[in-house]
Every structure is written in C-alpha cells, then in structure tokens.
Design a protein around this nucleic acid. Structure first.
Lengths: 120, 120
DNA sequence: ATAACATATGAATAAATGTTCAAATGTTTA
DNA sequence: TAAACATTTGAACATTTATTCATATGTTAT
C-alpha cells in the first residue's frame, strides 16, 4: 500500500490517482463558486419565467410585470440579478428600460434542463 | 387600440400578441417549478464538486467525503438531492454504496455554464 | 421648476437551504 | 448474536433568498 493511500471503506484503493485526476480537472474555488452562482440564477421560477418572455421579445419592466402578474419591484429585483450574471442586458429608451437576452447560453442551458426533466 | 391592449409605459403597445406567444411557449406551472428545482441542484458548489468527481469515476460515499474534505453526512445529504433529481444513480456493493452520473445532461449543462462564465 | 411616469433601491419579513450532531439502518465478519 | 463498518436520516442552527412596502432616482412634458 503506497504512502499516500488512504484507508476508506476497507477497499484500500489507490486514491492517489483519483485525487490527482480530480484536482487536475476540477475548476478552482473561485470558478466553482461562480458556476454555482450562475446556476442559482436559473434556480428560481420567476427568473425562468422572465427569461421565457425574453425568448420572444425585448420588453420593458412594466410589460414583464404585467405579463407575469407580479409587482414592478419584484421584477426589477430579479432583473438586477439576471443582469449581474450577464444573462440579460438593458437599454434605456426615454422613461422605459428595455431588457433582452445577453447571449445564447441562456437558451442552451434551459433547453438542456428541459430535456433532462422531460426524459424522466 | 384593441380591446385587450393594456396601457403600459405609455407605449400603448399591442400586448395581445406578446401574451399569446408567451403563453404558448411558456411551460406550465409544474414544469417551470421542476425546471427551477433542477437548476437549484446545480446551484451549490458542494454538489458541483461532487459531480466533478463523478465525471472521473464511480466512487463510494466515503471516497467522496475524503476527496472533498467534508463529513460523510454532509456528502450523503447532498447525494440524496442529486439522486432525487436523477442526476446521479447509486449501486450497493457490500457495505459501500457507489455513485455515478445518471446521464449526459449533467456534463452538457455544466459545460454550458462554464462557457458562459468564461466568456465574460 | 413642478408634476407625472418608469424604474431602481433599501429595509423588513417569511421561507428555504446547507452543515453539524446524534442516532438509526443496513451489511459483513467474528 | 454481537461487533464493526458504511451509509442514511432527522432535528437544530445559521445563513441565504424572494417578495413586499416605502422611498429614491431618473426621464419627459407642462
């Protein structure tokens, strides 16, 4: 049994190799945190509904509020989160602010999620 | 101004059309909830780290605990969540329980997430 | 400048979530 | 059967989070 091996589950397996491969491919702590933060953004049905609206059109905050039957404040708070994670972008036009999707990953990620839950 | 149009942002736009298209393409409430629940699972760095280990090998609970330097109870709780959402599957072999990825969506979804955060 | 509209923000509250600890369950070996 | 090992589970605690309410900021028209 090699020096770095660890007793575990009585299997006395060589963990050296696993630990090495995992530590090579595992993103660093900051990146893992960012990744989790990104998926947290998708982990709320209000934000997903907002994204589904933006799949169809560029809309202003009060249109979103009306379409989703929620207060303008609640929508605005969620849009801020979506914007911080670069999933949506905004553009001011007079008194209104129009929001739209920032890039294509949004569609891909949600599509993969749907595929997964529909396969069950 | 058509009957169903709504005053919003003083734009007096035809919301009929948007509402119609959105309601056609928006998943129903249950599916939206499931979708959000799925992404919530990805929204925790401990679970993402578990998935990264499972990218490399089928491992037992105490291997995971050791590799990630966490208690086996914490790992077990998270594995339960991953299993409930069908992202991982398990197999008992003697006293140990081995976990592995359940399907390919896990890799795709995480890959898309990484692409997104690395593009910024 | 003032009023009206659209959006953003901060504080507060209620609900959800991850980890720890202790104890229970399931499996193998003596 | 009893003891040892691997995993699961439930309750408790601290932290995070989504919405609401009130208010502030920014823009346009009078």
């Amino acid at each position: 049994m090699a020096v770095n091996d660890v007793e575990c589950c009585e299997t006395f397996q060589t963990h050296e190799e696993l630990l090495k491969v995992v530590s090579e491919k595992m993103p660093n702590e900051d990146k893992l945190y960012d990744l989790a933060e990104l998926f947290k953004v998708f982990g709320d049905s209000t934000r997903i509904r907002i994204l589904y609206v933006l799949f169809e059109a560029e809309v202003c905050v009060c249109d979103l509020a009306e379409t989703l039957s929620m207060t303008q404040s609640a929508i605005s708070h969620q849009l801020k989160i979506l914007k911080q994670s670069k999933l949506v972008k905004s553009r001011r036009e007079g008194k209104s602010v129009f929001y739209s999707l920032a890039d294509g990953h949004v569609r891909t990620i949600i599509a993969q999620g749907r595929e997964h839950i529909e396969e069950l």
